[in-house]
Nucleic acid binder design. Structure first.
Length: 641
RNA sequence: GCCGACGUAGCUCAGCUGGUAGAGCACUUCACUCGUAAUGAAGGGGUCCCCGGUUCGAGUCCGGGCGUCGGCUCCA
C-alpha cells in the first residue's frame, strides 16, 4: 500500500509503504537527497530515517532551513561528549542540548580532573576526527528497563536517573538512544544523518552548572560551544561577539570616564563627573515626568529598626540580602526596598477615598547584599537607586493605575528607542490571599496589558508571594536579559501594616498597593543605555555636549568665551586648550564621543563663529556662537536625540 | 554562595624551566602654534592584589583570603 505526503509547494507525492524522509528526498531529486538533514513532518522535526506517516505534510530540512541550526548544534553536543568520553575515561555524562547561540554538554569529571579552556584544543581535535569520519547517528528504540540496564552497567548515574524520572513522571515505556561511532546517548533526537554535518564549531567556555539546576545537587562541569552550518557563518558570529564586547558598558564606562569600581566597595559604582552628568540628566527627566503624572516625590531614611523589617516580612523572607548594624544596642537594618518607608508616610495621615490614588515617587537608594558571584558592572549592584514609586489606591482603581504605569513606562522607553519584552507573572505555589483576590489581580494586570494592545509572555507561578506582576526586560550587548521595569500588585503589605482609608460609606477599607519601577534602577538603566547607544549617548545626555577646539594657543581665550556662552545657555561645554594639533584634538574628541566639535581659528575668532563638526565627521561650517547656543539648548530641552 | 579562569605602571598587555621587571598608549617637561581622527624629543611612574609557606633567592612554586571575568543558583 502506498503512502501519500503533502509537500510545501502544495503537491502531493506518492511513496512506497514505510518510506522514510530519506526516501522522500531521493524521490524529489538526488541533489536534495544529498543535502537533506532531516524532515519537518506536520511541523515536527524528525530524523531522515524515520518512516513517514500517510497524509503528513512534509518539508525536507537542509542546511538552508531554519530548523537546521538547532539540529547541527545538538549534533555537535553529541560529538563533544564523544570526544570527552574518549579523553577522560570514567567521565559521567548528563545532558547536552542546543541553546540559543550554540550548545553545551554537562559532565561530571572523575575525581581530581579539573577541566579548563586550555584543554579545548585537544578536545576539538578529537571532535574533528569524529566529524571527518562522518559517523552516522543511529537511532535505537529500547524498552526502558533495557536502556536502564545499559546505562547502569556503564555507571552513567545521571542517565539512569533521567530514565527513572521518565518512567515515574511520564510513564514512558520505551526510550530512544542515539549512537555515533563509539558514543551512545539517551536522547530524544532528532539528529542529522551523520556527524559530518558539524562543519563549523568552536568550544567557547567552561563553567559550573548544578545538576538539574538545583543548587543542593552536584556541580557539574559545563562546556559551552557553538556550531554553524558553514565556516563563514561561524566566523561572522565570532566577529559579532567581538563587536558586542566593544560596547560592553564596563569597558565604555572606563574609556569614557563615566564610573569606576573599587575593591573597597564591591558592587558599588563610583560615579565620576562625566557619569554624574548623565545621571543628573536622567534624574531631571525622571523628576519632571513623575511630577507631570501625578506622583509626589518623597525621600526616606536608609536605616530602620529591625522591627519594621519584621513587620514587613523582609526579616523573614529577605534577611540574607540585607545589611544590619547596631546603633547603641539597637538592631537596625539598611533598607533593601522603599515600600515600608512609603507606607510610613501613608500612615502618617488619615486617608479618605477622596485622596486616592496616592502616588509617592522616590529615587530610592537601597542596599542589597547580592551574592558575590552575581555582581556585574552596573547591571547587578549592591547599591541600587531605584526610580521607585508606590501607588495606594482602591480595588476599582487598580487596572487604570496599571495602565497608566505601562503607558508611562513605554513613553520612557520610546524616548530611548528601547523595546522591552513583557512578562506577566501569575500566582505562585506559596502565596497569601484568596483565590478570588488573585483572580481579580491577575485579571487587572492582563486587562491592562490587553487594553494597551501589548504582547506579553505568560510566566505562570512566578509572581511575588503577595501578588502578580508585570516585568519589562531588555537584553544587553552580550545577550543577557535584565529586568528594568516592574509593576507589582500587592495585597499583603497593606494588610501587614494595617493600611486603611475611609470610604464614601464612612467605613474603613484596605487600599491596594502598586509597586512600580520603570527605569528599574538608575545604575542598570544607564548600563543598558551605554550599550544600547554603544557609548554615543543622545545629545541631551552626553556628559560633554560640545568641545571647543582652538587651532592654536592664542585662540584659547576666545575658546573660553565660547564655553561660557554655551554654559549660559545651560549646555555642558569644554575647551581643549592643549598645545596639540587640530587633528589630534578632533581625534580625541571623537574617541570621547563628544557630539559637537567646535573648531576655532583666525576666521571664527574674528567673526564670532565656530566651525561645527558633528561626532562621526559631518562638517557644517561656521555658525554664530549665539545662534548655536540657542539651537543646541533647544535640542537638549526637546530630548529628541 | 557554587564551579572554572584571571589579578604585573592610570589603561591594554609582555615577562621562557625561580635570579628582585618591560612595551605601547596615557602623564610631566621642553620645542612646535598647527584648520577636521595621533607633531617631535626627553623624563617621571611599579608594596608584580593581600597574608602566610617552600627556597640562598618568589612576579614566577604551594596554601589561605580578597577582587574581577565567564557560567550556575539566586534576584527580578
Amino acid at each position: 500500500m502506498a503512502l501519500h505526503v503533502h509537500l510545501p509547494d502544495g503537491k502531493e507525492l506518492e511513496l512506497a509503504e514505510g518510506a522514510s524522509g530519506a526516501d522522500l528526498a531521493s524521490a524529489i531529486g538526488p541533489g536534495l537527497a544529498r543535502a537533506a538533514l532531516a524532515v519537518a513532518a506536520d511541523g515536527q522535526v524528525r530524523d531522515l530515517a524515520a518512516p513517514l506517516r500517510d497524509g503528513a505534510s512534509v518539508a525536507v530540512i537542509t542546511a538552508k532551513s531554519d530548523e537546521a541550526l538547532p539540529l547541527v548544534r545538538h549534533d555537535a553536543a553529541h560529538v563533544l561528549a564523544t570526544a570527552v568520553m574518549e579523553l577522560y575515561p570514567g567521565v559521567k555524562i548528563s545532558i547536552g542540548p542546543a541553546i540559543e547561540n550554540g550548545f553545551y554538554y554537562d559532565f561530571e569529571f572523575p575525581e581530581g580532573v579539573v577541566l579548563s579552556e586550555a584543554d579545548f584544543p585537544a578536545i576539538e581535535e578529537r571532535m574533528r576526527a569524529h566529524i571527518k569520519a562522518g559517523e552516522p547517528f543511529v537511532r535505537e528504540d529500547l524498552p526502558v528497563a533495557a536502556a536502564r540496564e545499559r546505562f547502569l552497567a556503564q555507571r552513567q548515574d545521571y542517565k539512569v536517573e533521567l530514565i527513572d524520572d521518565l518512567m515515574r513522571d511520564e510513564g514512558v515505556e520505551t526510550v530512544s538512544l542515539y549512537t555515533n561511532g563509539p558514543f551512545t546517548d539517551l536522547c530524544r533526537g532528532p539528529h542529522a544523518p551523520s556527524t559530518a554535518t558539524v562543519k563549523a564549531f568552536a568550544l567557547q567556555s567552561v563553567a559550573g552548572a548544578y545538576w538539574r539546576g538545583d543548587s543542593r545537587r552536584t556541580m557539574l562541569t559545563r562546556i559551552y560551544g557553538t556550531a554553524f552550518l558553514s565556516k563563514q557563518e561561524l566566523d561572522a558570529y565570532l566577529e559579532q561577539l567581538e563587536l558586542a564586547r566593544q560596547r560592553d558598558h564596563r569597558r565604555l564606562g572606563r574609556e569614557l570616564g563615566l564610573f569606576m569600581f573599587s575593591e573597597l566597595s564591591p558592587g558599588s559604582p563610583f560615579w565620576k563627573p562625566a557619569g554624574m552628568a548623565v545621571w543628573n540628566q536622567l534624574t531631571e527627566l525622571w523628576r519632571e515626568e513623575n511630577q507631570a503624572r501625578g506622583y509626589r516625590e518623597v525621600k526616606t531614611p536608609m536605616l530602620y529598626d529591625v522591627e519594621l523589617w519584621k513587620q514587613s516580612g523582609h526579616w523573614e523572607k529577605y534577611k540574607d540580602n540585607m545589611y544590619f548594624t547596631d546603633v547603641e544596642g539597637r538592631a537596625m537594618g539598611l533598607k533593601p526596598m522603599n515600600c515600608p518607608a512609603h507606607i510610613q508616610i501613608y500612615k502618617d495621615e488619615r486617608r479618605s477615598y477622596r485622596d486616592l490614588p496616592v502616588r509617592y515617587s522616590e529615587a530610592g537608594l537601597v542596599h542589597r547584599h547580592e551574592p558575590s558571584g552575581v555582581l556585574h558592572g552596573l547591571m547587578r549592584v549592591r547599591h541600587i537607586t531605584q526610580d521607585d514609586a508606590h501607588i495606594f489606591c482602591t480595588d476599582e482603581q487598580v487596572q487604570d493605575e496599571v495602565v497608566q504605569c505601562l503607558r508611562f513606562g513605554f513613553d520612557l522607553y520610546d524616548l530611548f528607542g528601547l523595546e522591552p519584552r513583557l512578562e506577566l507573572s501569575t500566582r505562585p505555589e506559596k502565596r497569601i490571599g484568596s483565590d478570588e483576590m488573585w483572580d481579580r489581580a491577575e485579571a487587572a494586570l492582563a486587562g491592562a496589558l490587553d487594553s494597551e494592545g501589548l504582547a506579553y509572555e505568560l510566566n505562570p507561578g512566578d509572581g511575588a508571594f503577595y501578588g502578580p506582576k508585570i516585568d519589562m526586560h531588555l537584553t544587553d550587548s552580550i545577550g543577557r536579559s535584565w529586568q528594568l521595569g516592574t509593576v507589582q500588585l500587592d495585597y499583603s503589605m497593606p494588610e501587614r501594616f494595617d493600611l486603611a482609608y475611609t470610604g464614601a460609606d464612612n467605613a474603613e477599607h484596605r487600599p491596594v498597593m502598586i509597586h512600580r519601577a520603570l527605569l528599574g534602577s538608575f545604575e542598570r538603566f544607564i548600563g543598558i543605555m551605554i550599550e544600547h547607544y554603544a557609548g554615543v549617548l543622545p545629545f541631551w545626555l552626553a556628559p560633554v555636549q560640545a568641545i571647543v577646539l582652538p587651532v592654536a594657543d592664542r585662540f584659547n581665550e576666545a575658546g573660553e568665551a565660547v564655553v561660557a556662552a554655551l554654559g549660559q545657555a545651560g549646555l555642558r561645554a569644554e575647551v581643549d586648550a592643549r598645545s596639540e594639533s587640530v587633528g589630534r584634538k578632533i581625534r580625541d574628541a571623537e574617541l570621547r564621543k563628544v557630539p559637537y566639535m567646535l573648531v576655532l581659528g583666525e576666521r571664527e575668532a574674528a567673526e564670532g563663529t565656530v566651525s561645527v563638526r558633528s561626532h562621526g565627521g559631518a562638517d557644517r561650517g561656521p555658525v554664530a556662537v549665539g545662534e548655536l547656543a540657542r539651537e543646541l539648548a533647544e535640542r537638549a530641552r526637546a530630548r529628541t536625540d
